[in-house]
Simulated scan of single mutants.
Amino acid sequence: MAGFNLTPSDPSAFILMGIPGLEDAHLWIAITFSVFYFIALLGNFTILFIVCKAQTLHKPMYLLLCMLALTDIGLSTSVIPKALCIFLFNLKAITAVGCFTQMFFLHTVIITQSAVLGTMAFDRYVAICNPLRYTTILSNARIAKLGLLGLVRAVLFVLPMPLLLSRQPFCANHIISHTYCEHIAVAKISCGDTTFNRMYGLMVAFVVSGLDLTIIALSYGLILRAVLRISSKKSHLKALNTCTAHICVILMSYVSCLFSFLTQRFGDSIPPQIRITLANLYLLVPCMLNPIIYGVKTKELRVKMGIYTCRR
């Protein structure tokens, strides 16, 4: 079976090796990933269901939360099903088209999620610093347009990545030491000059994260300034409490994302099993924890969840 999977009938296909060095633990890794994936799907679909059912939650903040849930579902689903096929059934082959398609959807969702997190920071800024103008500045229609703009931006930035790599020669080495077709992991096995591919990927990462992190930092800087002008400590805590869930999600998403990104490109000294395991957990753990964080920290969402759970 292993020999068959390492010699696919399609000479242009790639071989995803899973987590090299941890082959004996693939079954336990698959069980762990399956549990995380199930919790992520359950939590994010629950948020989508509650917001869709409750008319009182049809507000910009919850529309953004639905966008975040959709990106979490897309992020984990673009990678985990194939990873489980590798771990459980040793199905390591993936067609070139399938590999580049996975790469496109994975990076598109990552950049879209970054735009959603930036928009959520701006939403909190308007809610705290300009509460009387909130409904005029951020309507549901405007939030939907911003979400669409974030998706279009992601597609335009990401599309050149698989297109450029698909034109590279791969010679005899089609073995990818990873569980999914990450851009740099695929570029490393090309026998052609991938300097431009690597530089483009690096540029996209820094432009996107730089822009979105600037929006987030500016929004929270203005929020902090507005909060410090309030004399009441109770009002301080009330204002900041509306941001805690979003701050937790931002820290978890960006720290794990940047760590995974930097180790993939500059962490050759890190053992591959550690680097690849962390790259997979980065795609799973935030997706699993995001709905839990918002479910715990958002009172209105928590109340509606209790109502619908009791009805069931």
Rank of each mutant, 00 (worst) to 15 (best):
residue 72 D to K: 09
residue 118 G to T: 04
residue 114 S to Q: 12
residue 131 P to H: 13
residue 91 L to Q: 15
residue 109 V to S: 08
residue 131 P to F: 03
residue 127 A to R: 00
residue 39 I to P: 08
residue 53 K to Q: 11
residue 157 F to L: 15
residue 113 Q to V: 07
residue 137 I to C: 07
residue 58 H to G: 06
residue 95 T to K: 10
residue 59 K to H: 05
residue 141 A to Q: 14
residue 74 G to Y: 04
residue 136 T to Q: 11
residue 146 L to A: 10
residue 85 C to P: 13
residue 112 T to A: 13
residue 106 L to E: 05
residue 75 L to V: 13
residue 154 A to Q: 06
residue 101 T to A: 11
residue 134 Y to E: 00
residue 151 L to H: 11
residue 136 T to G: 09
residue 85 C to E: 15
residue 61 M to N: 02
residue 105 F to T: 13
residue 41 L to V: 15
residue 132 L to Q: 15
residue 49 F to C: 12
residue 122 F to E: 01
residue 96 A to C: 08
residue 54 A to L: 11
residue 107 H to N: 10
residue 86 I to Y: 03
residue 146 L to Q: 12
residue 108 T to G: 09
residue 135 T to N: 10
residue 55 Q to V: 10
residue 145 K to L: 13
residue 47 I to M: 04
residue 111 I to N: 07
residue 57 L to M: 14
residue 110 I to M: 13
residue 89 F to I: 11
residue 132 L to I: 15
residue 41 L to H: 07
residue 122 F to K: 05
residue 145 K to G: 12
residue 76 S to T: 10
residue 125 Y to K: 02
residue 66 C to L: 07
residue 109 V to N: 08
residue 93 A to W: 01
residue 135 T to S: 13
residue 77 T to S: 12
residue 60 P to I: 02
residue 129 C to R: 05
residue 79 V to L: 07
residue 159 L to I: 11
residue 150 G to P: 08
residue 116 V to F: 07
residue 154 A to L: 09
residue 104 F to D: 04
residue 86 I to E: 02
residue 101 T to D: 08
residue 67 M to P: 02
residue 157 F to H: 11
residue 123 D to W: 01
residue 112 T to H: 12
residue 114 S to L: 12
residue 105 F to N: 09
residue 88 L to T: 14
residue 59 K to I: 02
residue 143 I to F: 06
residue 91 L to P: 06
residue 123 D to R: 01
residue 139 S to T: 08
residue 115 A to F: 09
residue 121 A to L: 07
residue 85 C to M: 15
residue 44 N to A: 07
residue 118 G to F: 04
residue 64 L to A: 00
residue 128 I to D: 02
residue 155 V to H: 12
residue 149 L to V: 12
residue 141 A to E: 09
residue 134 Y to P: 00
residue 59 K to P: 00
residue 43 G to V: 10
residue 93 A to H: 00
residue 90 N to V: 07
residue 131 P to L: 06
residue 62 Y to A: 00
residue 108 T to D: 10
residue 52 C to E: 10
residue 56 T to H: 15
residue 47 I to L: 07
residue 73 I to T: 06
residue 68 L to M: 09
residue 78 S to P: 03
residue 109 V to G: 06
residue 54 A to N: 13
residue 146 L to K: 08
residue 109 V to F: 11
residue 160 P to T: 06
residue 72 D to S: 14
residue 124 R to I: 03
residue 98 G to F: 11
residue 99 C to R: 03
residue 111 I to D: 03
residue 98 G to D: 10
residue 113 Q to T: 12
residue 125 Y to V: 02
residue 125 Y to N: 01
residue 143 I to Q: 00
residue 106 L to A: 14
residue 142 R to H: 06
residue 128 I to S: 01
residue 50 I to G: 03
residue 59 K to Y: 01
residue 158 V to F: 06
residue 137 I to N: 03
residue 150 G to S: 15
residue 118 G to N: 05
residue 60 P to F: 01
residue 74 G to F: 02
residue 63 L to G: 02
residue 63 L to N: 00
residue 60 P to G: 03
residue 89 F to E: 08
residue 48 L to H: 05
residue 133 R to Q: 11
residue 155 V to K: 10
residue 46 T to A: 13
residue 75 L to S: 15
residue 127 A to I: 00
residue 48 L to P: 04
residue 55 Q to R: 14
residue 86 I to A: 06
residue 42 L to M: 15
residue 138 L to H: 03
residue 125 Y to S: 01
residue 135 T to I: 13
residue 126 V to M: 03
residue 58 H to I: 04
residue 135 T to C: 10
residue 50 I to Y: 09
